[in-house]
């Protein structure tokens, strides 16, 4: 991820299938505070599309979707 943003919480949902990773992200979001940066690792292809869409639709900030080796990382910032 970007050098400037350090996640408040990292969720490792690798190996978990739809809807697991997205639900874990929403749970972390609901438990978090405004300004929290939440990062999720996933290997599930549905989540790669669903999570960024959820982040935008819910009025939060999508910091980025990064391809890692064998998985990808989605980073969001809680702004509401």
């Amino acid at each position: 991820m970007g050098d400037e943003v350090k996640p408040t919480k990292v969720i490792d949902a690798r190996g978990s299938f739809c809807p697991g990773p997205l639900m874990e992200m929403i749970k972390a979001y609901k438990q978090g505070k405004i300004g929290d940066v939440i990062s999720i690792y996933s290997t599930d292809s549905g989540t790669k599309k669903d999570a960024p869409e959820w982040i935008k639709k819910s009025g939060n900030e999508l910091i980025g979707v990064y391809d890692r080796q064998g998985y990808y990382e989605i980073v969001m910032k809680k702004i509401r």
């Binding site: 190996g15 299938f17 697991g20 929403i26 749970k27």
Partner: peptide, 18 residues
């Protein structure tokens, strides 16, 4: 093999979120 959660586990998980 892929440890897919049971439907009931999914219901439990989503009831914590929504």
């Amino acid at each position: 093999e892929k440890k897919i959660p049971s439907w009931l586990d999914t219901i439990r998980q989503i009831s914590e979120v929504g």
